[in-house]
Write a protein that binds this DNA or RNA. Sequence first.
DNA 1: GTCTATATTCGGATAGAC
DNA 2: GTCTATCCGAATATAGAC
Lengths: 198, 198
Amino acid sequence: MSRRPETKSSTPEDTRALILETALRLFSRNGFFNTSVQDIRKEADISIGSIYHHFSGKEAIAKAIYLDLLGKIDVTMRDILSRHSTAHDRCREVVVHLFSMTDAFPEAMEYILHARHREFMTDGIPICSSGPFARMKQMVEEGMESGEILPMDPLVATTSLFGGPIRLIHLRLDGILKEEISSLLEPTWLCAWKSVSK
Amino acid sequence: MSRRPETKSSTPEDTRALILETALRLFSRNGFFNTSVQDIRKEADISIGSIYHHFSGKEAIAKAIYLDLLGKIDVTMRDILSRHSTAHDRCREVVVHLFSMTDAFPEAMEYILHARHREFMTDGIPICSSGPFARMKQMVEEGMESGEILPMDPLVATTSLFGGPIRLIHLRLDGILKEEISSLLEPTWLCAWKSVSK
DNA sequence: GTCTATATTCGGATAGAC
DNA sequence: GTCTATCCGAATATAGAC
């Protein structure tokens, strides 16, 4: 258990991870429907059989990626909730994280943001995006109770607060914004917070 | 020319319009890739041949819808620009229009918002979404010159101002917001404007 | 200019050897 | 658990009658 008997050059056991990484890259770059399982096979340099051994099909791969990424984000969200106490600090930290993730892993961000509209969620997973979304709303609602955020419809407050930053992320992913998005963090957050605070 | 010789019950000459309407409905409901030309044929109750007589293929239909809708929006935008003089009134009117369009023609709105991410724009039409987008930015920039809007990066101002409302539109189209979105116009606009004004 | 019938391509998925 | 070869359905697009 301590040492592997044969050191296969690159990826020994986690073919699964390789498949997910490769598929994410291709899905983000060319889209789910413009990516065939053969494309994944070629890019990852493995066989069709191997892919179908690990996943039941293309949709299953897409869903695995989605749940994977969503889980990671949710972990971060919970971490933020525990490390900060005010709505201001929490929400700001969320935006910081979303921005840095956009710069560091644009494909992942792109995938998450468009997953539900990319038509491959043919069944189940109802509003999964609501995981992180629900936490944002929760932060806002608590901020309203504490008086940091003006009283109003929570949905309006949440969209007003995070809508600007998210819109900017879209522009960055679409290539309209050329610079790293993190460089616009301060003014963007300033506007966002001003929109719902006193 | 004044009277048609034969009054064919429903759509006499504009099969084209029928195809576009039908395709928009299906594309919005089920997505571009989950809609076959056969589906359009059935739903519109016409023949495959007729469809291919009017359009070179499925992509061409999608593009025609896109350009059609974008053109209409741009007309409205220009109208707003001419009828109002302050950035406040212009931008507010844009949001009013986007909201009422969301309530009245959700499929059209959904289509426009996701067209570029639906993977069927395999060629050309670079950032067509920039038509309306550019006009919004223009309104904001003029508002900055006139002093209505605080000086800052124009992109940040534009996303801050319209990001909240657009986000809310997404929630409405996704079914998360149950009520008509127009009912939330006032508080949403209040927040949006506050985020960039003095 | 609308129709039916059909050709052709493509891609998801399976079978079974190793 | 990884591989190759292959099947089969689906969907785009065309041909040609009316």
